[in-house]
Every structure is written in structure tokens, then in C-alpha cells.
Write a protein that binds this DNA or RNA. Structure first.
Lengths: 122, 122
DNA sequence: ATGCATGTTCGATGTGTATCGTAGATGCCG
DNA sequence: CGGCATCTACGATACACATCGAACATGCAT
């Protein structure tokens, strides 16, 4: 029976998760990047994530994200495959993930000098 | 001449604000509560906010929220009236504030005991 | 002017947590 | 059956920051 298709690590019911907890989880730059990567890649193992921190730190963040309810992780042989719980999250917090992932990067900063077309503007 | 209707404290252009910065600002429980209060009350002075921290701490959080771009504050006599930059925020991060403010509180937690109404017991 | 209220600023303190290195557990492959 | 890879667990460290109290600035009323 499918009780052990692939063991899934323990994760909270999203009904019990506060929005503040989610915001706190996503407030960390590395964790936000992880969610971005997994959202575009669909799923990935810990080692496949290209991040500016050491492996043990990535593992720590993956655990945090899972315990917060943002990720689900199954065991596959010796690797843990994680992915975003997108559908459940969309039900619990409609529009939240979309608005965050769709956010455009900030524009540099106007540099408080003369705004006159020093740049390529024409 | 409305050049000085009421002096407005310096605030960033939202175009320069990263989503990560906003998430970090909203990750603090007190700041999230402030945004909630201001969103429902429309605007309020520092002292009018009912919060579980001291006045100087509230002031600190209001400054953080303003410098992050979430609030605008104008001077009115001796008081500072703050409010959420709702329209600008909705343009910069469509749906973000709505999804956060609309989030429902978490349900308690199933308490891994027998679910039968034993909780009323004494 | 004097006093009072409102807010901010500053320094100090404590706590939380992001990060790392190392060691250990587990599965795969030849 | 070794040996290697992947990943987690643990302890240590460092830094960020939430919080407070006290001192100061400012405006208003009497």
C-alpha cells in the first residue's frame, strides 16, 4: 500500500500555520531564494540548490521551511527531494506566494546627483 | 500653499524597495500588528496604537516601517500621524498586502490526544 | 513663561538565529 | 563488502535586533 511510496518527512497542517510564521520564514534571503528556486525548478535535492552558503546551512534552512509548512520533502534513496507546497499554500494564503514570486527586483537607486540624462536616456 | 501642508518625514521610493526587505519588516509580530491596526484605523499617532511594548519601542518600529517604505508619516503639531502607503504598495507589490491582511488566524492545533471533547475536563 | 504631554534618540542588555566545521547515519555502486 | 556520496545532527561562534529606561526636543495650554 502507498503508506511508504516514499517516506515523507513530518510537516505541519497549514491550517495551524500563522501568516506571521510564514513571513518570518520568507524573511531570510537564503530561504526566499530556496523557495524561488524550487518554484521554478519544481523540485530539487539539497545538493542541487545553488546557494551561497554551505551544505549544512542549506539543510538547516530546508528543515526550517519544511517545519514552517512551506516545503514538503520525500526521501528518495539517499537524497531528500523538496518542493513547494504550492496548492495547499494557495488555499491557505490565497495570492501570497504569487505576489511574492512575481515581485520585480528593485531599481538601483536614483543616486542623489543631477538627474539629467547622464545615463543612456534619450 | 501646500508646499508645507504638513511636513512629511523622509521615505523611500517604493521602486527601490526589495520584496525581501518588506517581508523582513513584516516578519516582526509587533510591526505586523501595527500594519494591521493602521490598515483598519486608517491612520493613527504613535500613542494611539495599542501594543504590548513600550512607547520607545513603538517609535522604533514606526521608523523601521517608514524607512522600509510601508508607512508614511506626517507631522501634525506635536504628534506624528502614520498610515499605510496602501495604494503605492499595491502598485509595487500587487496582491501582497491584501493576502497578508486577509489571512485568517491559525486553528489551535489538533493536540495529538484523543480528540473527544476531553478538553473541558477538570 | 511654566508645566505637561507627545515622540524621538541614545546606550545597554538579552535573546534569537544564521553560519560554519565536524562527526555520524544511511543508501548506492562496483 | 568496502568505499564513496548525500544529507542531517550537534556544538560553537558571531552578529543582528527587539526591548527597555532615561534624557532630550518640541508644541500646546494655562
Amino acid at each position: 500500500m502507498r503508506t511508504l511510496d516514499q517516506a515523507r518527512l513530518p510537516q505541519p497542517d497549514l491550517a495551524e500555520v500563522e501568516i506571521g510564521t510564514v513571513l518570518q520564514a520568507l524573511a531570510d534571503p537564503v530561504r526566499l531564494q530556496i523557495v524561488r528556486l524550487l518554484s521554478s525548478q519544481g523540485a530539487a535535492a539539497c545538493g542541487e540548490l545553488d546557494l551561497p552558503v554551505k551544505r549544512s546551512t542549506v539543510s538547516h534552512h530546508l528543515r526550517t521551511l519544511r517545519e514552517t509548512g512551506l516545503l514538503e520533502t520525500h526521501l528518495k534513496g539517499n537524497t531528500r527531494v523538496s518542493k513547494v507546497r504550492r496548492e495547499e499554500l494557495d488555499r491557505r494564503f490565497p495570492g501570497l506566494l504569487a505576489s511574492i514570486l512575481d515581485a520585480t527586483p528593485a531599481v538601483p537607486a536614483p543616486s542623489e546627483e543631477e538627474p539629467g540624462g547622464a545615463d543612456g536616456e534619450r
